[in-house]
Write a protein that binds this DNA or RNA. Structure first.
Lengths: 193, 193, 193, 193
DNA sequence: CATTAAGCGAGACGGTACGTCTCGTCTTTTA
DNA sequence: TAAAAGACGAGACGTACCGTCTCGCTTAATG
């Protein structure tokens, strides 16, 4: 990579190369295979350039993760709660188990178990926003009068998405459409009028 | 630790010292602070002694984890499904968030996201057995006729414990008794006769 | 240093700041403590400004060294060989061991052991001229008829100043007036009539 | 290099490989080309092994220099002061300008100008011993009665070897046999009876 | 009762990656 | 158009652990 010094600001070229290299390494060799040296070598970038802009390798991965979750997991309003939820949970399962950004997420979530700071940043930077999006179908239904206005949205979300994350992160069981549909059925059976 | 050579069999003394040192280091410095060198130094044991008996540091932690989960999380039969489930989920929450073995479990679960082999061993060695125990209240209820005989126990467990693990591993939200009780209510509302 | 862009030639201000900073750093932290980065920071000058005008840090030091040797070590003609030599050797010793430019010289002479190019430049730029000056008392004496016309001035100089440099650069022994006077005595004993 | 751990003491094999690699690098690339990384790579040794046993690269070179000076520059007693001195000075010149250990010495002497600690160790470890050896012909002559008993041996040595070191380290002039012989002549002319 | 062999502590070894430092090059903006 | 600013690729620094390998001691069963 031809470097191009610049008085005002960093090299976007280098930034992109680093993020891609990190992503690639995670996909190819797993989290332990993502090293600053490896990223630098693969990106054709000096180690110092990485340390200048990112405090650690998880920061690189966090930035590489970027808006992937929002892009993949923003629900659409079909006007029907059941349809909205079934579609969204199915997409969530697919994102977590079948995409590259999903793999990055799992790696970050795993690392967050060892690193409370990362946990906080992952939650504040990505998970809280995702829970907002996850809750949209419920809020739309409340507005339509299809769900009680006093529904505890947070608890409802935990019951809907919790089992999906549990299968992905803990048991490793495949998350089938039947499984997610059943979660929605259980929810509708209890709350929908 | 005074070493005592021995022709037949390993030193139980060294084994205990290693397991305790690993546990202590995890509690004090987190997963990254658990190193073979650190364990050896703290246990007063030679590195080779650790490598002789455990392939890696996660194996030490797995062994230190031992039967803790079974000991803490074996349900009792009160003859009432609601009581059984509420008690058990509450204990699960306490175990995961409020005990030392729970911290070890979280660390191992985190590492398992980076290490598929560890994931398999964690599931085969501990999680599958735990799911058996988790399912006991349901099976007792089926035997009593309080739940339908064709209940999909696996899916039911995912819906009951999934949200608990989700809060612990993903959102970091406290898992209150009200939360676990609500999970049981939702389950009973749908399935119990 | 407030930078003052300038379309007419280089900044004498910057040049002076660089030379002084280099001198100061050498005195304070030794040769290894003289870095381009450090000089730039201390002089309030951009690194590029240094690289534009000096190929390396030894060039900066060489220029800082400048005419110091000539200024300190130009002999005066007292009309007496013994007096001339004794005074000159004594001044040489003082210059090498007791002055800032002497310290710069020692650093450059040391570096010249690792860098043949520097050695050549040091000799051509400073040492050969100094040897001319060192030889003046001898030439005056030859003109006066106090020394034979066929005296090998070069060898004579080596015998006179060599031991002084040797003590400074190799043994570290103090170079006393008694020592330099004795060098002159030995020389006069052999050559003077 | 097959490594062979050992409870009692270090690997002589590794030690030799390091010393040779350092010597070779100095000869091939000069002092700046001697780096710990380079030595490690060339010797097939881990960097840590070097850091374990030597505080810095000059320590490696000092040890590589070892007894070379003593081996090359121990005078023999021919029973005649002039012969002894002429032979010895000639050998000194050859050692300093024409041998590998001589090159190491020049590098170390150069570095010593930047590093007072190294200067001290070089003097205490090698130069003081060498001056003892250099002085032997004078002491033998004193015992024989060929030199006055009250001769200041130190000053005499400075006058004899100083010009040689001066030519080697400062002027770069070749040190011919004629030059060293002339030094001896000057000395004998003044002191010998 | 001496021999023998396994487990142990100690720790040196070849490696890999860490995070820091300085190098010398390059661009941009200002005066 | 020189100067300040400072990002960049490069690569050595010294440190921390990794997992492997003797080594010499201690101990308990064996002959």
């Amino acid at each position: 990579m031809a470097h191009r010094g610049n008085r005002h600001g960093r090299s976007e070229e280098a930034r992109q190369a680093v993020l891609e290299a990190a992503d690639d390494l995670l996909a190819e060799r797993g989290f332990a295979g993502v090293t600053i040296e490896g990223i630098a070598a693969r990106a054709g970038v000096a180690k110092q350039t990485i340390y200048r802009w990112w405090p650690s390798k998880v920061d690189v991965l966090l930035e590489a993760f970027g808006e992937d979750m929002a892009q993949h997991l923003t629900p659409e309003d079909h006007g029907d709660l059941g349809t909205d939820l079934r579609t969204h949970l199915s997409r969530l399962a697919e994102f977590l188990t079948g995409t590259d950004p999903g793999a990055v997420f799992r790696a970050l979530a795993g690392q967050a178990q060892h690193d409370p700071q990362l946990a906080t940043r992952l939650r504040d930077g990505h998970l809280s926003g995702q829970r907002e999006r996850d809750g949209l179908p419920l809020r739309w239904a409340i507005e339509r009068g299809d769900l009680p206005a006093d529904l505890d949205v947070g608890t409802a979300l935990d019951q809907l998405v919790g089992p999906v994350y549990y299968r992905v992160l803990v048991t490793g069981t495949p998350v089938t459409r039947a499984f997610t549909d059943d979660l929605v059925d259980a929810f509708l059976h209890r709350h929908a009028r």
